[in-house]
Every structure is written in structure tokens, then in C-alpha cells.
């Protein structure tokens, strides 16, 4: 299931255009119930809210573009682009598994699918995966097995979702970002959704997650995730050894011996600060000569 959570960055006005959400999500400044309004009305409401911001940065979130792509199939790019400006960004969610079926007889059979248009329009595309499913697929790939299928794809009667979907602990993000230069960046990320439990706080109360805390708690590349590596890679990463023929480390005894060594003239290094001096401890066999120059 594909679903995005939002974080509110500092001083960004968040406008939520709801097609399937009834209650205002946390951190959202304006909720526009587009499901109950016609196209012109909610378009105007969004435009009005943006105008009110007078140049303050705003983020428009559309909770699903599937109904729009059915009713406004040919008009979709123009419609969405009309909101985007120098101070406005748009985050639109498209459910990949909701079947697209354009409505009306006026539909052009030769027009590209809405998803194709949306992907063409987008600067960044995030596809959300469940970690459990990604790991299971990788384990199968590593052993050259066929990758398992989940949810609807399982083809089991009565199964809508695979177990492990929509985990609240973590998700995997597949990112495709198009730079201005035209070069694309493709990367897979691991995103924990729960901050690490603080010491002294029971795990039960740690689940009181605030959306803004979530991202700070550490996004990392999927290939750096301990569970994604094979045990061999993991052991290698733990050892941190380049694989040379020398033993660069120390044994425990060597380390203790090294710590026990007292460097010569250690107190001199603490510094007397009065220039060069000769420090000499008289031994029992030394014969003190009064005639010699004073030390």
C-alpha cells in the first residue's frame, strides 16, 4: 500500500487536498475536502489559500490523484501544473494498485495513461515498499529463487494485503530524482518511522510518535541496513579490515601492556615552563661533586 507521511518543515504552509481523507491530519494548516466539492470550487479554494500566503512557501498535498486521473485524464498535467509556482511545491499520491479506468465516452484511447503523465511531470518519484517484503524478495534473489509475491499479486482468493504491509516501524523508499541537469538519481532508502526509544521510557509510550521527530531519527541507504546485507558482508563491515595480510589490531594483552608503559621524563612534558633544564635523579653510586657547575 502506498502512502506518504508528511513532515512539516519550518515555516511551510501545508495545504491538504483530500479526496479520501475525512479528518485533518496533524501538522496540516488547511484541509480542503475536494471529495465533496466540484473541480472549479476546490481549485479556487486552493488558489485562494496560496494567495493568502503572500509568497510564504507552501506545500500542496493531494492524498490521492486516482479519482482525478479518472475524471480529468487528459487535463491532469495542466491541472496540477497550475498550482506549482516558485513558492509552491506539490506532493501527489497515486495508488498504483487502484485500477485506472477513464470515464466517459470522450476519452481518447490513444492518450497516455495518467500515471505515465504524472511520472513525466514529477521531479522526484517515491515508491513505498514494506521492509519485510523487500527483505523476502532479496533473500529469494540471493538464492536465485523466484521472488515471492504479496497481497493481491499472491493470487490467493480472499487476500487483499500481504502480512507485513503498512508496518509502523519502518518503510523502504525507492527514490527517483531528476536533477536540473537532466541526470537522474535512483536510490533505495530505509526510513524508520519510530524514533529509537529513549532510555528510561518504556516502549509503550515511545510509540507516541510525532511526525516531525520521525525523519531526524535516521534515514539510511537500504544497502547499509544490517538486515539487507548478507551475513558475509555484515561480518566484513563489522571487522572494518581492508583484507590485508598484516594484523593491524592489538590483542587484549598487548593493549594492556602498552597502556602500562611510562614514557621517559613524563613529568617534563607536563612542563616546568622555565626553559631548558637537566633533570637528574641521583643514584646511590653517584658521588656528588661540589666543584662542578651548579645544575
Amino acid at each position: 500500500m502506498h502512502r506518504l507521511t508528511t513532515t512539516q518543515a519550518a515555516n511551510v504552509h501545508v495545504i491538504f487536498v483530500a479526496f479520501e481523507t475525512l479528518r485533518k491530519p496533524r501538522d496540516v494548516d488547511a484541509l480542503i475536502p475536494a471529495w465533496s466539492l466540484d473541480l472549479k470550487t476546490w481549485q479556487k479554494q486552493v488558489a485562494d489559500v496560496i494567495k493568502e500566503q503572500k509568497g510564504r512557501r507552501s506545500l500542496i498535498i493531494i492524498d490521492t490523484t486516482n479519482p482525478l486521473s479518472a475524471t480529468e485524464a487528459s487535463n491532469l498535467p495542466a491541472l496540477l501544473s497550475s498550482f506549482i509556482g516558485p513558492t509552491t511545491s506539490l506532493l501527489a499520491v497515486y495508488h498504483l494498485d487502484v485500477l485506472h479506468r477513464p470515464q466517459g465516452c470522450g476519452h481518447n484511447a490513444y492518450a497516455p495513461a495518467p500515471l505515465t503523465l504524472l511520472k513525466y511531470l514529477a521531479t522526484t518519484i517515491f515508491t513505498v515498499h514494506a521492509l519485510q517484503h523487500v527483505l523476502a524478495c532479496k533473500a529469494a534473489r540471493d538464492r536465485s529463487h523466484a521472488e515471492p509475491l504479496f497481497g493481491l499479486e499472491e493470487g490467493t482468493e480472499g487476500v487483499l494485503q500481504g502480512l507485513g504491509a503498512n508496518g509502523k516501524q519502518e518503510i523502504v523508499l525507492e527514490m527517483e530524482h531528476r536533477r536540473k541537469s537532466g541526470r537522474g538519481v535512483r536510490e533505495w532508502f530505509y526510513l524508520p518511522l519510530q524514533p529509537a526509544p529513549k532510555p528510561g521510557v518504556s516502549s509503550g509510550t515511545a510509540s507516541t510518535t510525532h511526525a516531525t521527530k520521525i525523519v531526524r531519527s535516521g534515514i539510511l541507504l537500504l544497502e547499509d541496513h544490517p538486515q539487507y546485507r548478507t551475513p558475509e558482508q555484515e561480518a566484513e563491515a563489522q571487522a572494518g579490515n581492508g583484507g590485508g595480510t598484516f594484523e593491524l589490531g592489538l590483542t587484549e594483552k598487548q593493549r594492556r601492556d602498552r597502556e602500562g608503559v611510562v614514557l621517559p621524563y613524563f613529568d617534563a612534558q607536563k612542563g616546568g615552563g622555565d626553559g631548558g633544564r637537566i633533570l637528574y635523579d641521583m643514584g646511590s653510586e653517584d658521588d656528588f661533586d661540589e666543584d662542578e657547575d651548579e645544575i
Binding site: R3, R26, L160, N166, K168
Partner: peptide, 12 residues
């Protein structure tokens, strides 16, 4: 089978 649906993430 009980699974979390797409709205399991509505943090309120």
C-alpha cells in the same frame, strides 16, 4: 487475516 490498511498511518 487481519492486516493494517492504508489509513493505519493517520497520526493524530
Amino acid at each position: 487475516r487481519v492486516t493494517r490498511g492504508g489509513a493505519a498511518y493517520s497520526w493524530d
